[in-house]
Every structure is written in C-alpha cells, then in structure tokens.
C-alpha cells in the first residue's frame, strides 16, 4: 500500500493524471490489449478454427442477415465467412504478440550490444558501430524482407508455416536494435568515466554489477520511450510486410493481414472488411504512439 501510495505521488504519476491525452490513450491501449488477450472468451466465434467457418456466410454486411444462411454478424463477415469482430480480436492478438516479441528481441539485442560497445570501447566499439552504420543504410522494411527471404531458403519447406511468425519477429526486431544500442552505448560511455564507477572498478566490483546497478537504470527512461514507439512501429511494419507478401498465414491473420485482404474490397462495396480492421489498427497504434509521446516529455526532467 505504501509503495502504491508513493507511486501515486510520484512525478510520473502526477504528470500522467494531469494529461488527459495520456489517460485516454492508456485506457484505449489497455482495452485493446485486454480484449486481445481474452479474445477466446470475448469473441463470439473462433475465426482461427477453419472447421467452424461456412464459406456461404462470406461477405455478410454488418448487422444484416446473410442472403443464404440468414446469419447476422455485428461487423459483418469477410471473404471466408469469418466474423469480422472476432477476427479483429484474434488478429490483434497476433499483431500484439509480434509487436511485443519484436520489441523485446530488439531491446535485449540492442542493450546488450550497446553496453558491450560502450563499456569495452576500442575496436569492439568501432566494429559494432560500423555494423550499426551498415544496418542503418538499409531501411527496416528491406532488412525484414531479406531476412524473410533467407530464412525461407534455410528452413525446409515443410516447416515454413510454423516458423513464419518467428521469422517475422526476428526480421522486425533485427532491423530495430540499433536505436537501443546507440542510446545505451552513449550512456555507458558517460557513466564509465564518472568517478564513482572508476572507484568501484578500483575496489574490484564486478563490471556486470556496475553495469546492472548503475548504468542500466540510467538509460531505462529513453529505452522505454524507444520501446513504446517501437511497439507501434513493429505493428505497422508487420502490416507493411504483409502487403509485400511476407507475413503470417491468412488462415490466422494479424490486423495487418486483415487490412491487406480488406483493401482488395475498397472498390467492390464491401467496405466493412477494410474499415473495421483499419480502425482497430489505428486505435491501437495511435494510443501506443500517444503514450510514447507523453512518456518522452514526462521523462525529460528539463521539460517539467
């Protein structure tokens, strides 16, 4: 209770309570994340179970009975007869999973390499930063596309379907580690030269301990900001890759895959197949982005 009370009184919490945008964004993000996590209990249908689908239910407009089967769906159905509302919930699960996993992967890799470069300096630093340069010269989408292509070459055809989502996560994560590495490296270099660190080294404190106790906490703020924005970016990147023909299988679509499918129906009159998943993706990415924005300002002591 005491700890909770302290959190409530902290600067961050104060700033949060006094930023209506942040509160609304957080609520929106929370609702979407919870709805996605509890999709199997909330969604009226399971769109990922192919045996539950009836093709003849396809293209049912929202709230109107289907001409053949007479079934009615809140947000209508897509080209396979899937309930759009349920598919959005399940799709958000996939999108969020890919997003979070990619961010965690990039974060772990970036922090690790950043610390290594900043702490060790010398040729290790030069090498890692050159690699980062090369990596930066290739935009993330291109890197993801190439990794995806290579992975497909290595993995036997029969396994590709199962590992597709992991390849996707690695592709997106791998294209995003440089940002973390840069920030952490900078902080590590600054802290390394400070007297207390020098002193700790002299008395033989293990470098890992110094890094964990003193350097990491200092960079957690900026890392959190990068991670939040990175989550939104990863979710959008997944959608973009889906448009370019690499992504999760259409039988278990993410929000991005749903939009890719839906944009084929922009001119045909079945607007709901595109509209609802787009709104869901927009709300999700927007609320995460707004949170990131707020966090950036809130964590910057000079802006208070």
């Amino acid at each position: 209770m005491n700890r909770l009370g302290r959190m409530w009184d902290s600067d961050i919490a104060w700033s949060f309570r006094h930023s209506p945008v942040a509160v609304v964004a957080a609520a929106m993000a929370l609702i979407i994340i919870l709805a996605a996590v509890f999709a199997p209990w909330i969604a009226p249908y399971n769109p990922f179970d192919p045996s539950s689908l009836n093709l003849m239910d396809g293209f049912t407009p929202p709230g109107e009975p289907n001409a053949f089967t007479g079934n009615t769906y809140l947000m209508g159905t897509d080209n396979q007869g899937r309930d759009i509302f349920s598919t959005i919930l399940y799709g958000a699960r996939i999108s969020l999973f890919v997003g979070f996993a990619a961010v965690i992967f990039a974060m772990v890799l970036g922090i690790g390499l950043g610390l290594l470069a900043g702490w060790r300096g010398g040729w290790v630093d030069s090498l890692l930063m050159r690699v980062a340069d090369v990596q930066l010269s290739f935009p993330s989408i291109l890197i993801a596309l190439l990794i995806f292509g290579v992975a497909r070459g290595f993995i036997p055809p029969s396994m590709r379907e199962e590992v597709a989502i992991w390849v996707l996560i690695v592709s997106i994560g791998l294209s995003d580690w440089v940002q973390y590495a840069r920030v952490v490296r900078g902080a590590a270099m600054v802290e390394k030269s400070k007297e207390y660190v020098q002193a700790a080294r002299v008395i033989g404190v293990h470098p890992a301990r110094i890094v964990l106790r003193h350097i990491l906490p200092n960079v957690m703020g900026p890392v959190l900001v990068i991670a939040t924005i990175g989550l939104a970016l990863a979710i959008i990147a997944e959608a973009t890759l889906s448009f370019l023909g690499v992504g999760v299988p259409p039988t278990q679509p993410s929000l991005g895959t749903l939009i890719r499918i839906g944009q084929q129906y922009l001119f045909s009159g079945e607007w709901w197949i595109l509209l609802f998943p787009s709104i869901a993706l927009l709300l999700l990415a927007l609320s995460v982005n707004l949170l990131g924005d707020w966090l950036r300002d809130a964590l910057n002591p000079r802006l208070r």
Binding site: D49, S51, L55, P157, P249, P250
Partner: peptide, 25 residues
C-alpha cells in the same frame, strides 16, 4: 488463388484433415 486455398482448408477440416496453408509468391 489464396482465398480458394483458404476455403479448401476450412472444407478439409470437416473431414478431420488439418491443412496448414502456406501461401507465397
């Protein structure tokens, strides 16, 4: 093509054949 395969996956599942769809360029 992809939508045809997707529909086929659904139909096969009714006979207890679980097809994993791998659609690519």
């Amino acid at each position: 093509d992809e939508a045809i395969c997707q529909a086929m996956v659904g139909m096969l599942s009714r006979a207890n054949i679980n097809a994993n769809l791998v659609s690519q360029t």
